[in-house]
Design a binder for these strands. Structure first.
Ligand code: SF4
Ligand code: SF4
Lengths: 135, 135
DNA sequence: GGCTAAAAGACAATTTATATCTTTTTAGGA
DNA sequence: TCCTAAAAAGATATAAATTGTCTTTTAGCC
């Protein structure tokens, strides 16, 4: 339970790497993949998702590559994770209460809501800036 | 990400049902399964796990069935969840840091530790007693 | 011994995760 | 314009986890 997938882990590695570069620097996907040790074709898929929602900007052709879509202090870990993993829902009744006909009188249901809130809170409090800075 | 499996959901439903019964009442697996709307064979597997670690007591043969292993106020949701889902680890480096050679200098790593702590904290603060009481 | 019910283990279907490969589109430069 | 670079898009493949079911065994009661 509660485990980040490889996709999520790779996504974070890739975009944190970008966040550590100057904002206007265009990076080759192949370079990023090599630097963060992720299968290039897999990272390509991930960055396509990022690109669609503007988390990164992409440029095709010669001299192309990727750069961060916004300043790293304005991108939270929550955004990154939810971009590739979907919304954080510890139980499916949290996403769609109607999914479970017990959700009305269920005492467990609110616990999952709290879990969701706590996790989102932690992730929302962390930006790519902090993550990319030297320890 | 972060989603409880059916197994976990079923496990909670089953044991919360038991927690709502008198502590010395022996319940048939088939009755529990019917009451909480879970496939009986699946619930059997789950209760076997519970039984091994003492969360429930089992009795075979005529008049057999299951009862809670301890008072419901002494069983936390965390125990129940970890019993069937395994330890709560939002990323595999939290379970085994050596798993990732970056874990030493990684800024993301401590975030996952915090997430783990928050989730475990919430679940550890909820007992079967509260969960089984009428709303 | 015969009935009941859980324990244990093997097996199967479906879904998710984890990629890879190919083709297409876009852009830059000679 | 043609060639090359690089991302976008889509199809496909493999492996693993999830979600069960079925059968056989063991234990307890009458
Ligand atoms: S029984 Fe409660 S916790 Fe489980 S799915 Fe339904 S509402 Fe959610
Ligand atoms: S890179 Fe950091 S967060 Fe990712 S697995 Fe390694 S230690 Fe954990």
């Amino acid at each position: 339970m509660m485990e980040l997938t490889r996709k999520g882990e790779y996504a974070i590695r890739g975009i944190v790497y970008l966040a550590g570069k100057p904002l206007d620097k265009v990076c080759l996907l192949s370079d990023i993949a090599a630097a963060v040790d992720v299968p290039p074709t897999f990272l390509a898929k991930i960055f396509q998702q990022f690109s669609k929602i503007g988390l990164v900007k992409s440029f095709r052709g010669t001299g192309g590559g990727f750069m961060l879509g916004r300043a790293p202090e304005n991108i939270t870990l929550l955004e990154v994770v939810e971009a590739v993993e979907g919304p954080i829902v510890p139980n499916r009744c949290v996403a769609i209460p109607a999914n479970c006909d017990r959700s009305g009188a269920c005492n467990v249901h609110p616990v999952w809501r709290r879990v969701q809130g706590e996790v989102r809170g932690v992730l929302n409090g962390v930006t790519l800036k902090e993550l990319s800075e030297e320890g």
